[in-house]
């Protein structure tokens, strides 16, 4: 059994850990509310934007030239780019591990050369450690995100796609479902057309196509300016939404992880306190035994002494 002092030290350090995790939980809890409100608010916009784009797409499909370079699907896909969205900081449970695992499985199934663009320190570190081809990495993106904060990432991907450096761009992100559930996913992003995703696990469709019939759309003021206006913007909106989803997921995952850690710390303190009390009781018992033993041996000595004195007295008496 460990000594009571050792146990006392452990109790103190576990209590400290518990305090830290509780503080982290409180911080995440306040961030999680903001991030969740933001992701839910912009979800409608992102979804409607994709719907409009897909409708235009369906309506103009098969009419030869694609409307915009970002809508041009290539028949021979040689190189793939994956934008991997992770967090800068850890202590978020399995959040980063899950999305990295899903991204890797996607890569194995794709069987094409991959160029990685990592957003967040954890993803970059993991990919560099695995010796992957990381072409760009973005870290320290502000928490109070505006769409302009994510546009350098979008620009890089759009340039790589339009220049023919890559033929497909995917986004690996974590879909926010609720505080307890988040789903790591891969989303086909560029070109912004419906992809065939039957070959992959954990891949989501860009949007459900609601009209399949060929409709003649009119464009006001004219086709070119509308397409030029909405396609690049909607492209950014997709990435922005993915980032917001990941952010809300990250804070939720961290909050839950920290709550579990705090609970575990509390439990551990209880167990250790029991152990401490046992050790203390054992020490007291052994002390009492020592005293009793000491007293007994003292008694023995006294008895012996008394006996010898008595013997001596008797001997002198009989010698007279």
């Amino acid at each position: 059994m460990p000594s009571s002092r050792e146990v006392k030290n452990r109790i103190r350090s576990v209590k400290n850990i518990g305090q830290i995790t509780r503080a982290l939980e409180a911080v995440s809890a306040s961030r999680v509310r903001k991030a969740q409100a933001k992701v839910l608010a912009s979800r409608d916009y992102a979804q409607k934007a994709m719907e409009i784009l897909m409708n235009i797409q369906a309506a103009t499909a098969g009419s030869g030239e694609p409307l915009h370079p970002l809508l041009a699907q290539r028949e021979d896909v040689k190189n793939i780019m994956v934008v991997l969205i992770t967090s800068d900081r850890g202590l978020a449970g399995a959040f980063n591990g899950n999305i990295i695992r899903v991204a890797q499985r996607f890569v194995r199934q794709a069987q094409k050369p991959i160029q990685w663009v990592t957003v967040g320190r954890k993803g970059r570190d993991a990919m560099v450690r695995m010796g992957q081809n990381v072409v760009a990495s973005f870290i320290d993106i502000p928490d109070e995100l505006r769409i302009s904060d994510i546009s350098p990432v979008a620009q890089l991907a759009k340039d790589a796609f339009t220049s023919g450096q890559v033929d497909d761009v995917f986004v690996a992100y974590t879909d926010f479902i609720n505080t307890l559930t988040q789903r790591p996913l891969v989303l086909p992003w560029l070109p912004m057309v419906p992809h065939d995703i039957s070959a992959y696990d954990d891949v989501r469709k860009l949007a459900e196509v609601t009209t399949t019939s060929h409709q003649d759309y009119e464009f006001e003021p004219d086709t070119a300016s509308i397409i030029e206006q909405i396609v690049p913007r909607f492209t950014d909106v997709v990435l922005y939404q993915c980032y917001l989803e990941s952010k809300a997921s990250e804070h939720s995952a961290r909050m839950v992880a920290m709550r579990n850690a705090s609970d575990n710390a509390g439990q551990l303190v209880e167990d250790l306190t029991l152990l401490y009390n046992k050790a203390r009781q054992a020490a007291i018992t052994s002390e009492i035994l020592d005293i009793v033993g000491g007293a007994e041996s003292l008694q023995d000595t006294l008895d012996k002494k008394a006996a010898s004195i008595l013997e001596a007295a008797e001997a002198s008496a009989s010698g007279d």
């Binding site: 309506a59 003649d216 759309y217 009119e218 464009f219 006001e220 509308i226």
Partner: peptide
């Protein structure tokens, strides 16, 4: 200003 009634032709406008 663009007035839209039912059965309007499919249009995308800025």
């Amino acid at each position: 200003q663009m007035g839209v009634l039912p059965h309007h032709a499919p249009t995308v406008a800025s």
